[in-house]
Amino acid sequence: MLSLMERASLWGSGLGAVVSATALGREPLTATLCMTFFGGCCAFLIYESRRRATDETISAVGGFLRERRLARHDIDGYQQLVEIAAPLRGRAGVWALTELSHDPRLMDGLFFHARRREIAGLPEPGTEPLSWALASLHPNGYVREAAVAAMGRAPRFEFVPFLVERAVERVDAVRSAALAALRQIPAGASAESFARVAARRHAGDLAELWAIPGHEDS
């Protein structure tokens, strides 16, 4: 959000750029320099406004996670978390994805309630990594499959917990897509990730992928 002074500066810079454009025929060099200057001022002010808005969003989400300290059975808390995270885009979305994926306690609770279909408002896959991750928890198998496919096309380490969850699910197509996506990501946290789902059906395929000995599907 721009302050009153910054709004006035943005309006003035925009007006300066327009006035400069009208002088292109008479003084092309001067007019071009003025347009560049005023246009640059506009771009900077807009960028600064968006940067501050993103920082405020990150601060708000971080504050929620620190203050709420979600317990596994806090359904309302996880519902609120999804409602806060789902609309995030750009830098804020990447930050939220990183925070979630690096917190096993949060992941466990989120997956638990998603499996029980207790969380409403899970998004469909959009164009953002965070939306793909959250969409992979959707109750509709076709949505989950599309989300996993999107993660497979642009693999990143933060997707691992979400892909592991899908690699042991009941729908064959989703499970196969998740295993294929995991093959593209170094298994740096394979032991920890596998431990969470080791007792689940189809965990054997994941154990085979990561060469974890002594495991068979239950």
Rank of each mutant, 00 (worst) to 15 (best):
L24G: 14
T22I: 04
D55K: 15
R51V: 14
G40C: 00
V171W: 11
S131D: 05
I212Y: 01
V18H: 04
S20K: 03
S136Q: 03
A135S: 14
F38I: 00
R156M: 05
E118N: 08
R201K: 10
D76A: 13
G39N: 04
I212D: 00
P161F: 03
L179M: 13
A17V: 05
R7Q: 12
R105P: 00
P123V: 03
L15K: 11
V160G: 00
F37A: 07
R91F: 08
G141L: 06
A177H: 06
E128V: 14
A96F: 03
T98V: 09
A149R: 12
L97A: 01
R89G: 08
R153Y: 06
G204S: 12
R69T: 08
A114S: 15
L182I: 14
G63A: 09
C41M: 13
H202R: 15
M107P: 03
A178R: 08
L122F: 06
E165W: 09
I185D: 05
S13D: 00
E169W: 11
A189Y: 09
A167P: 05
I84W: 02
D76N: 03
G121T: 14
P87K: 07
T22M: 04
G63I: 11
T22N: 00
E99G: 04
V148M: 06
G188N: 09
E208I: 07
